[in-house]
Write a protein that binds this DNA or RNA. Structure first.
Length: 558
RNA sequence: GCGCCUGUAGCUCAACGGAUAGAGCACUGGGCUUCGGACCCAGGGGUUGCAGGUUCGAAUCCUGUCGGGCGCGCCA
């Protein structure tokens, strides 16, 4: 990867500040942190810094004076064509055309690795997401987290980190017991025996389907077993089938995991006991009212939480603590990112408290809360409930809307906003989804390159210094933003910038396409054609990278 | 009642404390005898819920207020 323009500019400013300080041109004690931005208005240059405005107070010097002093210390050079100041105290930078042109070569050279960064401090990161109980198929409500998590994981990887994508399978606990009992009841029913769905049991049709499937594959032998044994064995099969289905559904959306971590293994491996012992040693556990409590109130939570019920059964929270002990201590992840729905927001403080009590800096646990998705069909709100069996499955959604459009829709919104998902609108407008606009750009390029190859054109000798058209330069400028974006997203954990960027990049390409003819039979145009083919090939790489990072396909034709 | 999130164009959403608040869809009107029209150009549409405050500068930060979502179990 070539150095990023932004880093070059920051380095220049830092150098200027250092000189201003050492030569006493500005009364600076230390060199302040430099931030640059991309001005919204391109007339203000490629980069700008408002540092003089920030320094005005502490130095007691007028912002414009500081700006001018700094600008004078930054003469034009190989990368920067012009440095100038603007009121009330900005310093603006314009990149040199020759430098921009050369970046096309740099991108081609980087190839598919363009946009993949090398970080000075690579970390071992886990992204845990979806983690829905395997008590039923995955539904639309889970789609947002799935898309968010998988994209974030890709971006963190591109930013140079080592990433593990993990699904926590809650294969223990009361909800699972209830599910097993529900499947058992349907199984007995299918055999024509009297059976009652347990109260609060799972009513969805899929439960019956599952029971009948098991019946046809395994026969009726569970009917004659002791109830307890039957629930155990039948339950295991039902769970495995459910997990397989979830796996398959997620795969259709382009989401896959490196690890499927079973809650039960925490108990089997002894890690659960180890965790409790650890907490006990630290004095974080207290026996009260017949139960064992974790003293989270003193750690900032609004109340203490039960770890072991008076019945002797551990709570979900207990195994969650053991799970995070496993993540941080046994598997030694530097950072753990959990993606949760807004309905789990109340658990953030207590889990962070627990992690802290285990001797791990709670800042290493980052919990991203994605707000709820309200599912609608026109004006009507569709209720989603697994227990009552009233829901739209992820599979139905993906089949209807398509995985790419589906991903785009969820990805383009920041996690903090509540969304309305109108099934009617999504289906009707899926063909107008911006993702096709982006993919169309990619396909158009593929078509041009194809045609050029058919004509036997070899553009390796193309001279990029011929790329002077404003449309060409605008396209290059957009292409250069991708690495910056990858870095920014990996720090702020906000992947929603990526689809917006991809759209802008595609716009820049379509604009170029409209105004700059690539292939031509005119002999006088030949050199320009070669240069433009280079640009187009590089643009395709960048578009493809953006699409790939978002987990979308890169069609050659549509 | 308390906690977290949220309110921006007709709709769905962007905007790292920065310069004239931007996109897509929808609407109106234009644009190819040559590389893919799933494209391009132009236009209308905004007191950023409201009121104060901080700042050279606020959609963004602080306080208050009104509206929406989600939590506040020995459920997961």
């Amino acid at each position: 990867m070539p150095p990023q323009a932004r880093d070059l500019i920051i380095a220049k400013i830092e150098k200027a500040l250092e000189r201003a300080r050492s030569q006493s041109l500005l009364p600076l004690e230390t060199v302040p942190e430099v931030e640059v931005e991309h001005p919204a208005n391109s007339q203000h240059g490629d980069f700008a810094t408002s540092l003089p405005l920030r320094l005005a107070r502490s130095t007691r010097i007028a912002p414009m004076e500081i700006a001018n002093t700094l600008a004078d210390l930054m003469p034009a050079d190989q990368e920067v064509e012009r440095v100038w100041t603007a009121p009330p105290g900005f310093v603006n930078f314009t990149l040199r055309q020759e430098w921009l042109q050369k970046q096309v070569l740099a991108i081609l050279e980087a190839g598919k690795a363009y946009g993949t960064l090398e970080t000075p401090n690579p970390q071992k990161i886990m992204v845990e997401f979806v983690s829905v109980n395997p008590t039923g198929p995955i539904h639309v409500g889970h789609t947002r987290g799935a898309v968010l998590g998988s994209t974030l994981a890709s971006i963190l990887e591109a930013a140079g980190h080592s990433v593990t994508r993990e699904y926590y399978v809650n294969d223990a606990g009361t909800q699972m017991e209830l599910f097993y009992a529900s499947v058992y009841a349907r199984y007995m029913e299918a055999l024509g025996k009297e059976a009652q769905l347990p109260s609060g049991g799972y009513q969805g049709d899929y439960v019956g389907d599952l029971a009948r499937e098991i019946l046809s594959q395994e026969g009726d032998r569970y009917a004659s077993m002791e109830l307890e044994e039957a629930l155990k064995v039948l339950g295991r099969i039902a769970r495995e089938k459910m997990v397989d289905q979830i796996k398959e559904d997620l795969l259709r959306l382009g989401v896959s995991f490196d690890v499927w971590f079973g809650e039960n293994t925490l108990f089997e491996s002894g890690e659960y006991d180890e965790t409790l012992e650890h907490l006990k040693q630290g004095g974080h556990l207290a026996q009260r009212e017949g139960a064992l409590w974790f003293a989270s109130a003193v750690l900032g939570d609004d109340r203490d939480n039960v770890v072991i019920r008076s019945s002797g059964a551990p709570t979900y929270f207990a195994s969650d603590m053991a799970y995070h002990h496993n993540k941080f201590i046994r598997r030694a992840f530097d950072r753990v990112i959990n993606i949760w729905g807004a309905d789990h927001q109340g658990h953030v403080t207590r889990l962070k408290a627990a992690v802290g009590a285990l001797g791990v800096d709670p800042a290493r646990l980052e919990i991203i809360i994605s707000q709820m998705v309200t599912l609608k069909r026109g004006q009507e709100v569709v209720k989603v409930s697994k227990r009552t069996g009233e829901f739209v499955t992820l599979r139905e959604l993906v089949d209807e809307v398509g995985p790419d459009a589906c991903r785009y829709f969820f990805l383009a919104r920041s996690p903090g906003t509540q969304m309305d998902f109108d099934l009617e609108l999504a289906t009707r407008e899926s063909s107008e989804n911006p993702v096709y606009y982006i993919q169309y750009g990619h396909a158009r390029i593929a078509s041009i390159l194809d045609k050029a190859r058919q004509q036997g054109i070899d553009w390796t000798t193309g001279d990029v210094s011929l790329l002077r058209d404003p449309n060409e330069l605008a396209l290059i400028r957009k292409m250069l933003l991708l690495p910056e974006l990858v870095e920014k997203i990996s720090q702020a954990m906000e992947p929603h910038h990526l689809p917006h960027y991809a759209l802008e990049l595609a716009t820049a390409f379509h604009w170029f396409y409209e105004n700059c003819r690539v292939l031509s039979s005119d002999p006088a145009h030949q050199q320009l054609t070669l240069a433009r083919l280079k640009l187009v090939e590089a643009a395709q790489l960048v578009l493809a990278k953006a699409l790939t990072l978002m987990g979308m396909t890169t069609p050659e034709r549509m």
